[in-house]
Simulated scan of single mutants.
Amino acid sequence: MPTAREIMTSGVECVDTDQTAADAARLMARHRVGAVPICGPDNKLKGVVTDRDIAVKVVGQGRDAGTFPAGNLNQAEAVTIGADDSADEVLATMTRHQVRRLPVIDNDRLVGMISIADVARALPQDATGELVAALSAE
């Protein structure tokens, strides 16, 4: 069974907590992704902001994405996975926390992200199907 490190996409860029929601959106557009990690001044992961977060919590609320701090979009606690954790643990964590993207940490340092697409490329179809079904259930 592969590890998170073997499944993840590496070279992930963070949006800083003091940057704006618009900065986060530009970063997503540049990298053609739907989410970026949020990092604080200490370079530690603070959360993940998604394109949906920006649409619903910023634009949908009539806020200015050019001034709204990206750091205000992070969760209370970031859900992460260790780089050497197994694919089974990746699937269990994504399912348990109902997340479609999972930051990968190695010694408190962000080293990558795992998305459903990464899971689909690396794991058997049945594992991907079960994950998608679990994340789609209400």
Rank of each mutant, 00 (worst) to 15 (best):
E89V: 15
I54Y: 03
D23R: 02
A22K: 13
K46A: 03
G11C: 05
A70M: 13
E138S: 08
G62E: 02
A24W: 03
T80A: 02
L131I: 06
T20D: 08
R26F: 10
R26S: 14
T95F: 14
P37H: 11
E89I: 11
F68I: 01
A133V: 05
N72G: 12
I81W: 10
Q19W: 12
Q98R: 12
A4Q: 11
H31Y: 14
V56K: 01
V12F: 11
P124Y: 07
I105R: 06
R5C: 00
E138C: 04
A117Q: 13
L110K: 11
G71Q: 08
D64P: 00
R26K: 15
L27G: 09
R32G: 05
I81S: 14
C14S: 03
V59A: 07
Q61A: 12
V15H: 12
R30G: 09
P37I: 13
S136Q: 07
Q19V: 14
L110R: 09
Q19M: 15
R30S: 15
G34H: 04
D64E: 00
P41D: 06
V59W: 05
D126G: 09
T67S: 04
R32N: 13
A4S: 14
A24R: 05
A83W: 05
V132F: 01
E6G: 02
G129W: 02
D88L: 11
V119D: 04
R121I: 06
P103T: 03
R121W: 03
A117L: 15
D23I: 02
H31Q: 15
G60M: 01
A4F: 10
R109W: 01
E13A: 04
M28I: 01
G11Y: 01
V79D: 06
E6K: 00
I114R: 07
K44G: 03
L27S: 11
A78R: 05
T67G: 03
A65E: 04
H31I: 14
D84C: 05
P103N: 06
A78N: 05
V56G: 02
K46N: 07
I105K: 07
G11Q: 04
G112R: 01
R63P: 02
D18S: 15
R63N: 04
V119I: 10
N107P: 10
G66A: 06
G82W: 05
R26G: 07
T20W: 03
A70D: 15
R26D: 14
E130C: 06
I114P: 04
R52P: 01
